[in-house]
Amino acid sequence: MKRILLLALALGTIQSVVAQDDLLDFLGEEEESINYTSATFKDSRVINVQSNETAAKGVLRFVISHRFGRLSDGAYELFGLDNATIRLGLDYGITDRIQVGIARSSFEKTYEGNLKVKLLRQSSGGKEVPVSLTWYSGMYINGLRWEDPERENYFTSRLSYAHQLIVTRKFSKSFSLAFVPSYLHDNLVRTAEMNNDQLALGLGGRVKLTNRLSLNAEYHYRVIKRVEQDDPYNNSFSIGVDIETGGHVFQLHVTNSRGMFETAYIGETAGRWVDGDIYFGFNISRVFTVGKR
């Protein structure tokens, strides 16, 4: 009986040693933890274009944006400060990876609903992921009065959409890039020759100058334009700085786009830098923790 007990004990010990080995192996794998890259950009936008950043779970972000008139309008218009378009937006983080938002722009009296999802996060350590992938979709409702109230007008004619895949990489502590292909759709265009669909490729970047200051720029090249011949629109280019102060981020910039939502600044930029159509603008965001974290 003693022998049997000793044998059982020995077997049990061996088994537990094997199990411990397994457990140690398991722990060994986990020791190399995953480091997710944070703060690729300072705010949810590079300037106009969306970055990979979203509001954290339970956080409500209030964004006020202005674009003023042309700098070339001169002193009479106080270099454009007399004419402003405004966008008021609210973004809310449902989880750390899903953000929903609503906004209203005075540009074409547009209402907006949007969704942003972090699909893949740049990381190192246990999991090497070289880039972050983020999806952004927006729906825009043009709120202008019907140009001809007498004819049969459809609500769907007011709608346009934008879908973007935001590919970002933080190369170093002070340098990040975003590559953003955009697909835009307008339900109603003016003439049969115009395209309802547009495609653009955007590039945005950020160079951190100090802990609180960074230099940002972005450019959107339209591959498929709304109007192919005698195009009245131009590619959007913007350059500016981000200034962080506590819970606020101030983004000050100059741009040739007056619209502050995707179908406007990518598809309807009428200004040309060479003609002095440069608009000063800013985005200010403030975060509030309203939900459970």
Binding site: S137, N187, L188, V189
Partner: peptide, 13 residues
């Protein structure tokens, strides 16, 4: 959103 997509233009509509 594709479900709500239309390819209209004022000339033809």
């Amino acid at each position: 959103s594709l479900n709500g997509c239309y390819y209209d233009n004022v000339e033809e509509l």
